[in-house]
Design a protein around this nucleic acid. Sequence first.
RNA 1: GUGGCCGUAGCUCAGUCCGGUUAGAGCACCGCGUUGUGGUCGCGGAUGUCGCGGGUUCGAAUCCCGUCGGUCACCCCA
Length: 421
Amino acid sequence: MSARDTFRAPKGTRDLLPPESGRQRAALDRFAALASRYGYGEIVSPMFEDLAVFQRVGESTEIVGKEMFELVTKGEGETRLALRPELTASVCRAFAQHRPATPWKVFYQGPQFRYERPQAGRYRQFTQVGIEALGPDDPMLDVEVITLGRRFLDSLGLTRVTLLLNTLGDPAGRPAYFAALREYLSDRRTELSIQSQTTLETNPLRVLDSKRAEDADVISGAPLMVDHLSAEAAEHFAAVRAGLDQLGIGYEISPRLVRGLDYYLRTTFEFAAESLDTAQNAVGGGGRYDGLVEQLGGPPTPGVGFALGVDRILLACDAEAAFDGPPEAVDVFVIDLTDGTRALPIIDEIATAGLAADRAYDNRSMKAQFKAADRSGARVAVIVGDDEVAAGTATVKDLATGDQAPVVRADLLSALRKQLT
RNA sequence: GUGGCCGUAGCUCAGUCCGGUUAGAGCACCGCGUUGUGGUCGCGGAUGUCGCGGGUUCGAAUCCCGUCGGUCACCCCA
């Protein structure tokens, strides 16, 4: 690390190199395929938006308040932009802009950006996959969304992820609950931590989410939303639970589960990885955000969705020894004993035909080329030397057994296909 | 923004407490053992301004100060 002038990836970012990058690629592909099967189409929205798009999401949230990467544009007036810290706001902005027919069901994948101090499972640039479903108010849609998230985690082989479920009530029941909560917390505010006392001013609900030990007592006695639901919200929540029960999807009611974004109401949920012993064990979360589209200038439109953190999910896969990702090995390794030019058309032919091939360079010795062939993981080697050239053949060798035989050059591809089946 | 721990070869680390000739190991890499046959094995090889700067000392990877970076935690969240 004689890193005198060596550049490094910026703090909180990292390079994904093979084979780890292939693993992430496979996870993203798997998610896209799954979402498609539930009727979701992909939305590709900009990496940055007008700063105000995110500010509408909630001024009192950490994400908006202090974790945004803001961009300064040159000579374009007053435009203030920010790298997206999450995608729900972008999706709702896109909905308000294009007014697609509902139900509008989209999935997304890509990097998000938050300016925070990095630590285990927390990066300044991190990758999320997610879905958003806009239009229907139907609790069956909540169930579908949650199910899709659960199935994705299942498909990776994760078994130790708990689904935490809660409801934050609806506009009919929230004011009364908020008043009760605020009154309770205010009465006992001196018992709260300094930070929670501040939080109480901006968003009393989030005080319930404090993990500080000194707050535990107060929080445990606080009134709960589930006890103050409107009839409608209670019914919605019951329907969501019944739907999950019907599918056999397990969950844990978590009455103090509060999500980090202010726009959530009614159903909220979180996927917690029990296998991660780091401080960040939430691998995903979501809920309903029925007022958000309207806040962004669109028609009143209910919405529900989730975002999953791919980086953390892969950490959980490590912890559970799940989801290795695809093998890196090529099918064929071409060993050229002439001057290296004979391998060129062979590789081209093999790759064009849909098989994977690799070779050595710089006129390495035969021994070195065989070593490279071993390392490539190829099952078969094709050897071309002066003898083969003179005879119009290529030698096909099974690298596991050592068996080899010459084949007429024109028959090489079919011989390889046969070897590899 | 606050705090703990850590920076020695490409990687993982020993050496640092009790300063002392050319700074080590394993893995990985390259070559040879076989001028048409690899994986194993054997032999050999290359690679470090010991994060950076300053200080103490006859002498600093080692002690002191500063600084940068990494990491973990708080906070918050994916």
